[in-house]
Design a protein around this nucleic acid. Structure first.
Lengths: 192, 192
DNA sequence: CGTCTCGTTGAGAGTTTTCAATGTAAGTGG
DNA sequence: CCACTTACATTGAAAACTCTCAACGAGACG
């Protein structure tokens, strides 16, 4: 149950056996069915979630009720409404499961306690967030400056997992494009 | 010279006096004239820079040579091409000074050493990056889903420092819009 | 005084979205 | 297992949005 998490952490920092046992005690295991919510807009995001199995997505709803996806979280990824989680403000994101999933949840208080009791977890999260920032910076540059076609091609190249496992509708939403645009781009690429 | 940095760090974690002295030894002080580069595309980004005075910007150049800004760094902010800095890959960002500035630079090796010698700096950077992720997540949602007018209004509200101190051209570039679009939005807002 | 940058405005072009229609695939309940 | 419903991908046409190009005036600076 904790294998994926422990491996993920050990790739970045070294944990002692007793630390591993202690670490496990901070988490709660949770299963999520397909389409089941982990978080809904307006709630306080109580937990940081590690995906040990499955795929989740976070998104906002636009004025017409369409999902605008901000993140896919595959196995080995963390997901939450970070602002809500850290500052106890109302979540503006929704989070739900794209397929049946399993999570390890840690609450705000436990998260704080964890980093204090196992200081090297500060290092783990520092490195995790550091890498995450690189990715987000790049996504932001792409979002602001690339055309629809460039955005799609770049995603296919840099993140095949997304384009292989997920529907075009989800991909379109993730890229901030309409499904029709994705369809037309794919057609154009195939004809070339 | 180190005041801004020390205060910034102390807001997030507690440093002992001897740690402060040790910390200072990891940094190099550097002055940058207006328009002077800190980093150019293609170089390896050797340093993480803390802005103790002034304003810097990071940007890519599009195919026509236009600057597409990814970040403004005001006093008390960090700036770098994070991917290049961490992974020693070629920088895809340029960084230069918008006005005469003063920086505190720390190299990759010193950064590593710093976190090892003063472990609480892992915590500082963890919290720093954590907050930065919240901001970037939000920027990404806006970039993908908001109209030009919504982007501008949101920036004015949430980040008045940018709209007060910087030219419309710079703001346009930061938002991924043309200067003409910003001009038209401003006109429309004034008429309302 | 001349030069350069910046902000504004107009017109036209290009890109992407929206709306509507259709066919297909997938999921659900009897 | 089949009928029904729902979701997904595609296509066309029109609308909306934003950019590009060009021109102009104002202000900063040497």
């Amino acid at each position: 149950m904790f294998d994926v998490l422990i491996i993920h952490i050990q790739q970045k920092v070294k944990l002692e056996d007793n630390q591993i046992e202690l670490l496990k005690s901070f988490f709660i295991h949770k299963k999520l069915r397909r389409k089941q919510y982990l978080l809904q807009e307006g709630e306080i995001c109580k937990n940081l979630a590690f995906v040990s199995k499955g795929i989740l997505k976070s998104y906002i709803l636009d004025e017409k009720g369409n999902e605008r996806i901000s993140l896919f979280a595959f196995e080995g990824w963390w997901i939450s409404d970070f602002n809500s989680f850290l500052n106890e403000e109302k979540a503006f994101l929704n989070i739900d499961a794209i397929e049946d999933s399993e999570l390890l949840l840690i609450s705000r208080e436990k998260y704080e306690e964890l980093t204090l009791q196992i200081p090297i977890m500060d290092r783990y999260f520092r490195i995790l967030y550091q890498n995450s920032l690189v990715t987000k910076d790049y996504r932001l540059v792409i979002s602001n400056n690339f055309t629809a076609e460039e955005k799609y091609l770049q995603l296919v190249q840099s993140n095949p997992e997304i384009t292989q496992k997920l529907s075009h509708t989800l991909i379109a939403s993730y890229l901030g494009l309409s499904p029709e645009t994705i369809s037309r781009i794919r057609k154009k690429i195939l004809l070339q």
